[in-house]
């Protein structure tokens, strides 16, 4: 049968920063082909297709972000595979190779990470689950 794609509405203008992305205009409707856990979603919009940030989209059927899982305050251990320096107040800076506890995985690709007493958002694409044998 036909593949039914989910439709999302663009909530803010987005200007592409690399070649596989597409520009978005607030109010546009896009169809989602693939949802990557790192917060980039592959979409098609009229004749264009490419990657866009999930956080710039809301489901057409309702503004609820129902797909986010609940926070897990015990945390899950992850190791950073890339350093990231916080650019905003609510982010956390970590070097490469640090272990951190992830307490909330959000669909937008920014997960809440805890290191000691510090808590903040960190890019999920720079995290790899501890104990998982994957090459990067």
């Amino acid at each position: 049968g036909p593949i039914i794609l989910e439709t999302y509405r663009v909530v803010a203008d987005f200007v592409k920063t690399s070649k596989n992305e597409i520009n978005l205009h607030s109010g546009d409707l896009v169809e989602i082909v693939e949802k990557s856990q790192n917060g980039w979603w592959f979409c098609q919009c009229e004749s264009k297709h490419g990657w866009v940030p999930a956080s710039y989209l809301e489901p057409l059927d309702g503004p609820e972000e129902a797909e986010d899982v609940e926070p897990n305050y015990e945390g899950e251990l992850y190791i950073t595979i890339n350093a990231y320096k916080a650019e905003q107040e609510d982010e956390i800076s970590l070097d490469m190779g640090e272990t951190t506890e992830v307490i909330h995985k959000l669909l937008d690709g920014w997960w809440v990470a805890r290191k000691g007493e510090e808590v903040g958002y960190f890019p999920s694409m720079y995290l790899q689950k501890c104990g998982k044998k994957e090459k990067y």
Binding site: T17, N38, P53, Q88, D108
Partner: peptide
């Protein structure tokens, strides 16, 4: 290929979306 997602983290949610999370 275009099927490969960007190698940089996506931008943080726009202010419109952050308000909803509060």
């Amino acid at each position: 290929s275009i099927k490969n997602p960007p190698q940089n983290p996506p931008p943080r949610p726009p202010p419109e979306m952050r308000r909803k999370r509060v």
